[in-house]
Design a protein around this nucleic acid. Structure first.
Lengths: 315, 315
DNA sequence: CGTTTATGCGGATAAATATTCTAGTGACAA
DNA sequence: TTGTCACTAGAATATTTATCCGCATAAACG
């Protein structure tokens, strides 16, 4: 099993003892072993690798079991992960924490083989970035929404899908389109294309999906300048409370009949609803109204959110 | 038991998990927990302290059991510690290693209460510096030789004795004299003083002693200019092979009748011989002749030496 | 209550550790 | 022999971590 015997265990034990047990610095250890500090650093790494040094950390329960159960029963979910976050955490920190501790949850919920649809968004990106190479999967990953604007961002579904197949293998079906086009005609033109039809066909067979759930205000679209203040006002007028894959919905989770509806290229909410496992990811209590709407509409089957948001949802 | 609840265990577990298990840097952890990196550093230290994080190192056997047994039976010793050292270790490194791993041995061999004589020397200093505060002892520490020259060095018996009582408590009897004086008359004058007589009385009651064993060449005395080349030649002429507490002895461990003998203020070898537990400390194979002489003369009851020296002794 | 004395925080910075880069060494083939 | 590859080591350097210090808030005291 040890590919290279490199250095005898005895030396590693000695160095590790001097360093970890007796608390000497690497430089001091180096003097005793008569090698460079550089080498001690490498020796210690090897000792950790070989198990001569083992570091045990009391298990940390990142998830809030009680809130998860309440959410599941209250909203009839298949599963939920509520991640504990620092009380005063900012939006970015919360997303990262949710991503970090949520990634294993999502990975466990995803099928080992089959079709998986991915949306974009910052929260989803934080999750996807942290997937670990596990037992190999045989997934067909499908991009569920176009790219938000022309400079490709690492939170676009295109990037996230690419990252997933790079890590887990499998094939990735891309939607080579923007998320928003100027009018219905253009949209219909795209949808009529052979490639897109093929992608949609696969979306209909999806076994699972992971999507971000955005609020109306503070949405990435507003931030990125895709949406203007006037647009937001219009959407609010249509009853919109939140967004999934660029599609806005009202408090009951019904897609709003806004003028944006005809300009978006992404999975329809009605189609999403039919996917047996849809994981909604979000962080921050200000997203509670959006989440509540999505849940009422049955758009999501599972949740990955932070504690504050969970509490807001249950209140 | 926890004097201060400071931070909830949960946070510590989270930080420790992120750092040790997930391999994030402290800066990254800090972002998620929303505190400064500084604090994470302290949190991690606290986690280690509280036992939330435990680091296990496979036990390292610093001592060479087989050589120890051979030495004990060959030379009729009460005990011996042979410390493994790096094959190419220099003299300094060997001494430090012997001191480091030998200190617990010496501490275990020392009585919990009683009178202990201490000699000077670099090897002894390395040992004494590394004693740990254990169960409290009730020792009377007695300086067994004067200071080598006027600028007090941290390897002088005076300093070593001081360090021992500082750590373990107890009283320290000092010999406020140099190790070497100009002639016999001066020496006798010192010895006749009340204070020194008192110290000698205690030395006669000593339950244990720790002394360095020096070679003839390369001795600290030569190095410090106390002895000149001519003196070394003279001593060699008298059959000297080594030195303990400034007293030179021949291959059979008998004190040499050199002109130095009358000028030294330190425990007589004959007196040393009567102490029930005398630990000789030395490092480096070039000291084998000195050690061999001391052992033949029955000057030592226990040994603390490095591997190379042990092998040289047995050869 | 106002004042003084602890305690805890994070920014700046010193110290320690990890990584990069280059040179040296030995194995092997030509 | 000589060149090349594969590898290891340590010096230089970048990065990360620990410590020092002043400030602010909280506790203790008059």
């Amino acid at each position: 099993m040890p590919a290279k015997a490199a250095y005898p265990d005895d030396i590693l034990r000695m160095a590790a003892t001097l360093y970890y047990v007796d608390g000497l610095g690497q430089t001091e250890v180096a003097k005793l072993v008569r090698v460079s500090q550089t080498k001690i650093s490498r020796l210690l790494a090897a000792a950790l690798e070989r198990g001569i040094v083992r570091i045990n950390v009391e298990e940390y329960h990142a998830r809030h079991d009680k809130l998860e159960h309440q959410l599941c029963s209250r909203f009839g979910l298949r599963s939920a992960a509520v991640i504990k976050t620092a009380r005063n955490a900012g939006a970015e920190a919360a997303r990262q924490t949710v991503g970090h501790f949520g990634a294993p949850f999502v990975a466990s919920v995803f099928p080992k083989s089959g079709v998986v649809a991915v949306g974009g968004g910052r929260s989803v990106a934080e999750v996807v970035q942290r997937f670990r190479r596990g037992e190999s999967r045989r997934l067909t990953v499908v991009q569920a929404m176009g790219s938000i604007d022309s400079n490709l961002s690492h939170v676009d579904a295109l990037e996230l899908g690419r990252a997933m197949v790079k890590l887990w293998g499998g094939e990735f079906l891309t939607l080579s389109t923007p998320a928003f086009v100027s009018d219905k005609k253009t949209r219909d033109f795209f949808l009529a294309s052979q490639q897109i039809k093929f992608v949609w066909q696969r979306l209909r067979q999806a076994d699972a999906a992971i999507v971000g759930v955005g609020p109306l205000d503070l949405s990435v679209y507003l931030e990125r300048g895709v949406l203007g203040a006037a647009d937001v006002a219009h959407l609010r007028g249509c009853g919109a409370v939140g967004e999934i894959c660029g599609r806005f919905f009202d408090a009951k989770g019904r897609e709003c009949a806004s003028r944006w509806r005809d300009r978006v290229i992404s999975i329809e909410l009605e189609l999403l609803k039919k996917i047996p496992q849809v994981i909604g990811v979000a962080a921050g209590p200000e997203r509670a109204p959006a989440l509540a709407g999505a849940l009422r509409g049955g758009l999501l089957k599972s949740l990955l959110i932070d504690e504050a948001l969970a509490q807001a949802l249950l209140a």
